[in-house]
Every structure is written in structure tokens, then in C-alpha cells.
Amino acid sequence: MTRLVAENIELKTGSHPAAITVCGDCSFKNGFLTGLIGANGAGKTTFLKALAGLKAPDRGQIILGDRSLSDFSPQQKAASIAYLPQNRRIQWPVKARDLISLGRLTYGRSLSRLDQQDRIAINHAIEVTEVSDLLDRSMASLSGGERARILLARALAVDASVLLADEPLAALDPGYAMQIMDVLLQEAGRGRIVIVALHDLTLAARYCDQLVLWNQGRIVAEGTPEDVLTEEALAGCYRIKAIKQNYEGHLLITPYARADF
């Protein structure tokens, strides 16, 4: 079993020191889809960047398998952890097919020299994200939802054991959002560690095996959606009142008012 562990890490972000502290072990197992939830600025993105090895913790360490992430070479790290950022900006109007192939740059090959293994990984990514009809289109001509799926396919093409996705559902309609979550769940089912930062609490409860709730740079709750999404937690972290109900075995969270303090 592969484990990704954030061991007492502490990071300072930006020019205004706002330390994000993880107390105790925050551990992620393979085969599980974990959702990071919390208000804007709670520290989810910074934490994901630390897990991806893009920001070195000021204290503590990240352990993947049985080794500290700081002992990994950049190439080993890149082959083990795929990162899908929140920002969907693409600089040049490349074709969707080429963009997905960029995931294989991890293995030191140029795009003109992809081998059989690369093609298998790319084809798998295309298949699960259902983007085969978009491949020959320029990224500039795609809608937000189509672009999100192509970018997810790029991250999947890395074929890493860990997939970190930072708000992949931002600005997507419910259909596209559920499609993305289906893919993430399916990838977790294939034995990967999948961690996703989310704002849609119903989708988080519907799809994630475990949730980690962030507030002001700290983890305040961790566990199953039922345990984490309590009325007190929602009021404390999001300052909302929400209706919790069960529908056909699924937990639905519907915010209806701002909580007064």
C-alpha cells in the first residue's frame, strides 16, 4: 500500500506570513479519493503545492511510500505525483492532443519521440476523460468544460501514483463537474492516491471517501463526509447555515443562510 503523509508540516505563504500548520499526521492512502474543503484562503492550494513538491515545507516533511519527498530527484517526483493546478490558462493555442501529450515530458522525452508506453498512457487518459472527439481542436476553440477535461487528461497522462487536483470543478456546469468527479473516483479505484480541492460540498460528500476540512491555515476536521460536514463545522469554517439531508443514500448539503456570530 502506498501512503502519502504530511508529517507536521508548516509552510509560510506569500509576502504576508500566514503560516499553515498541519498538526499530527495527515495521511492519504491509495485507492481513496480525498477531498480538501474549506473557505477561500484556508490553505488548500498551498497544502496541495507542498504535497506536489512545488513548495518545500518550512518545518516537517512529506513522505511518499517510505521516503521523504525531499530525497526524490525532480524526475522521480514528477513521475510519482501529477499536479493539476487551479489556473487553466494556456499560453499558445496548441491542439488538445498535443496538450495531453505534455504529460509525458516527465519521462524526459520530447513530444516528437513518444514511445509505445507513452501512447498507452495518453490513450488511457483520452478514453477515461471522453475527449477523443476534441483531440484535433485548438485549445482556443474549446469551452471551459472541454478545456477542464483536456487538462485533467494531461494530468492523467503522467500516469503517476498520486494525482493532486486543485479545484478542477471551478466554473463548470453540474454535468461537467460530475463527469470530472467520476473520472477522479475511477482513478482512485485504479489504486491511485487522488486528492482534490473542492468547493461543492454536495459533490464532495457524494464522491469523496474522506474529507479534510481546512480553516485559517489549519486542518480542523478529518474523516468521512458524514463526520466532517457537521452544522458546527460549516458554520465555523464557511459561516453558513446549511440543510443536511439524505437522498437515496447520498448526503446533500444545501446552504441557505449566512451564519450569525
Binding site: L54, P74, K77, A78, I90, L102, L105, G108, R154, V158
Partner: peptide, 19 residues
């Protein structure tokens, strides 16, 4: 060459791809 291709997706993704 390859690093420039990776930068199409921004600094963070290029770094996460091992550059």
C-alpha cells in the same frame, strides 16, 4: 526545447513535470 513546451501550462505544471 522540452521545458519551453512544458511552460505552455505555466510554471507550476512545468515544475511538477520535473523541469
Amino acid at each position: 526545447a522540452s521545458a519551453l513546451d512544458a511552460l505552455i501550462l505555466g510554471d507550476d505544471v512545468a515544475a511538477s513535470l520535473g523541469f
